[in-house]
Simulated scan of single mutants.
Amino acid sequence: MRQLALDLPLPSRLGMEDFLVAPANQVAFETIERWPQWPGNVLVLVGPEGSGKSHLAAIWAERAAAFRMQGGDLETASLDRLEGHGMIDDADQIGPHEARLFHVLNILRENGRFGLLTARSAPDSWGVRTPDLLSRLRLAPMLRLLPPDEALVSAVLIKLLADRQLTVDTSVVDFLCRRMERSIATARRIVAALDAASLASGRRVTRATAAEVLASLEAADASRHGLVTGVAQNAADPNSE
């Protein structure tokens, strides 16, 4: 009998014990760990989507009891609560709210507090038009997170599978790593789909299940973007290399 797979995603685990340190993130991790012995009162943490920057920023925000903000929500953020340290996730998404970001940076400096900004790219590419703000951002030490390598993606997959109490052979993890996009966000999406497929079928995850999930996700992405691709067909064959 097939079970109904409910789309109930697990809450993101953003604790220190859930962050996997690897060469791609080690320098940034060690710098965050050295707080408050930072090279400046504001750091910019840069990395591609799925590289773990929000996770690392959340670890620091928890440790520093920092007020958390989103770059796109700065206009409505209540800065009355910004008495201590501050963390701005996706600071490159400030859009027309440059004056607001500049105000936040000034508050942090005047109060002798620390700030951590995350972004997908360096400040020069944010399109900032306020000279004083751009100068301030350029002076802030920047930490870079590199895209996850295969070893890190493999470790993330294993941890996410364990979090959902899914037991799989190492060959399944190797199969996924060779074919998936190397990002933590993609790993989360794949594991959630594997969990749903396993629950719906009532069977454990196999290489065939992994191939079906990869093909299904890629087909959905291709359909959403109006693309035609043959990679999904190759992914559907668990014996293809």
Rank of each mutant, 00 (worst) to 15 (best):
G84L: 11
F67K: 07
R81A: 12
L194D: 00
F114M: 05
V168N: 00
R109G: 05
A65L: 12
L20K: 11
P36Q: 10
A185V: 07
C177Y: 01
A220I: 03
N234K: 13
V44D: 02
A236H: 07
P96L: 14
S223D: 09
A64V: 06
L116T: 01
V172E: 01
L133I: 03
E181W: 03
G112L: 08
L160P: 00
A211M: 05
R34Y: 06
L134V: 05
Q93R: 15
A211I: 06
G127S: 06
I88M: 07
L108H: 06
R188H: 12
V172R: 10
P96N: 10
G112T: 05
E241N: 05
F114H: 12
A24L: 02
L108D: 00
S54I: 03
R204P: 00
S201C: 10
A64I: 07
N25R: 15
T130I: 14
L82Y: 06
L43S: 04
P11L: 07
A162N: 08
A119W: 04
A193L: 03
A193N: 07
R179W: 10
L43H: 10
W126V: 01
I88N: 03
V168I: 09
L8M: 09
V104R: 04
T76Q: 15
L227F: 07
W60F: 06
R2E: 10
S51G: 08
R81V: 00
K159I: 00
G72D: 14
D92F: 08
A187V: 08
E98N: 08
G226F: 08
H55Q: 05
G47W: 01
N234W: 10
L4K: 09
M180D: 01
F67R: 11
P9Q: 04
R204D: 10
G15N: 04
T76S: 12
F175Y: 15
H97R: 13
E49F: 06
E83M: 12
N239R: 13
N106G: 09
V153K: 01
A220V: 06
A99K: 14
V231L: 14
A196D: 00
G115F: 02
S201N: 12
